[in-house]
Amino acid sequence: MSSKSPRRSIGDLSEGTLGLLMLLPAILLLCLIVVYPVGRLMYISLFDWRMSLPNAVPAFVGLEHYIYALTDDPKFWDAVYNTVLITIITVPGALVVGLGLALVANLPFKHRWPTRLALLLPWALPLVFAGLIFRWFFNYDYGLVNDILQRLGFGKVLWGTDPNLAFFTICLVIIWKSSSFMAMILLAGLQTIPRNLYEAAKVDGATSWQCFWKITLPMLIPSMVVALVFRTITAIQTFDIPYAMTGGGPGGTTETLAMYIHKTTIDFLDFGYGSALAMLMFLVSLGATTIYLRIIQGDKE
């Protein structure tokens, strides 16, 4: 550095500049793994881009894909309907079940690890495995569930043929699978609640039930919001379990938005339209996250 201007060491930089400099690696990384892919996705969504015809020049179609999806594609709306229904059933469902599990796991048993291990297992199981296992559970001919029903003197139930039952079993499995994630976040939250708050409340005259409603629940709200944000986003992206359990059947009644995107891009190789659908899903997730963040911020004020 032989320039005439005095050499500046890092210490001479203003705090703001230094801060920016230190954030730079994170910003670059974020650009690489978030901004670029999303930007690229948006770009592709504006073209008629088919990988099944790789030598054809993709034609610019502007917002045509979006307009088609929103106004003219009943399969898109069916998939959105199924996805929304799965979200509004399984997210609160998993919250309630997860809260119950977390409360059980937080009980002062002598040995807590069996409960906690049981909690961890569904979470550690890959989604597709869970889907395949339950597909066998609910299998018409060989399934455990129908076997039990028959032994109890009931008839066999068409779990995979009746669309309502198929939808119900999928939701059940998603709740089973995701409630352990909920429970783990809520358990961490439960453990941060000081024990003496309960003692104070008991002395103040609270019953165990009142302790739960007046202390546990309000104190868990931050953990619940975090759990809900994560769970809602993954619920919007539901793919593996219905894919493994029903493949979208019967008659497409359990096909989610993510499955439709997968089908469009991977099976049909229609990257242009698939990208537009993926952008729409991204916007929905973004919207859901924004709402939750607003709720948290509103609570802080």
Partner: peptide, 11 residues
Amino acid sequence: MVFQDYALYPH
């Protein structure tokens, strides 16, 4: 009862 660390309900 008044507790050592007060045990006020933070919410």
